[in-house]
Amino acid sequence: MSSEREQVLAEAFVGLADTLVAGYDVIDMLHRLTEVCVELLAVDAAGMLLSDQRGNLQMMASSSESSRLMELFQLQNDEGPCLDCYRSGSPVVSVDRADAAQRWPRFAAQAELEGFESVHALPLRLRHETIGALNLFGGQQGALPPGDLRVAQALADVATISILQERAVHRGEMLAEQLQAALNSRVIIEQAKGVLGERGQLDMDQAFNRLRTHARSNNRRLSELARAVVEGTIDASEMLDVLPVAKAWDPTVG
């Protein structure tokens, strides 16, 4: 591993650890994590799916909110590497299209549309339980180097910890409580994207970016802000009209 890459890796983990300390938003954290995957690893897109404890996998975060990418993740409730990984609790690797087409025909067809050649799925595990999986998509054929895979698994482990939070560790029932809270936060964010998208005539990706930018520049948790948008306790026009001048009011935002 080059020293430059080590530096990037170290910074990424420091950044993630920082967000874990206090008052972090789990969905925001998971999004950041998928972005880190794309920055650090030889992959072009990353997404995280969690079990909803009702037999389905739900998309929680992705390196891009592109609706076509979401489609790919949603498909995995029927078939795909993430589903296999979740069920087996073990990493699933598919190095080329021919292999993927054989194992998951529908998934492979959609992945081909998106221009992906390879896919890796790594489990989000807590002791003996698998709560979801991290998906990594590459535009090139071939498996990730072992070093990359170890980094990816470490990032998946960070995701598990961030979902559970520190107080969860000693109480088994907290897993269900935290997981359901995280899943519901994701739903609130989708509802808020709809409100903002309609108010500002934005697509859902743009709506998400406005929401996230506003949360960051105002030091608010993403899910709390999303709830305020849906409940109408914040004027959505703040997020729609204002160009990124928020920095001028908040010098702490970098």
């Binding site: 037999g55 389905n56 979401m70 409730n77 509802q191 409940e231």
Partner: peptide
Amino acid sequence: GRRSHTAVHQATGMIMVQAGVDA
């Protein structure tokens, strides 16, 4: 079926604005 209903949640937000109703 096994769906995320993502579009349902997004549409809920959009219809709130279109029709002027709560979620």
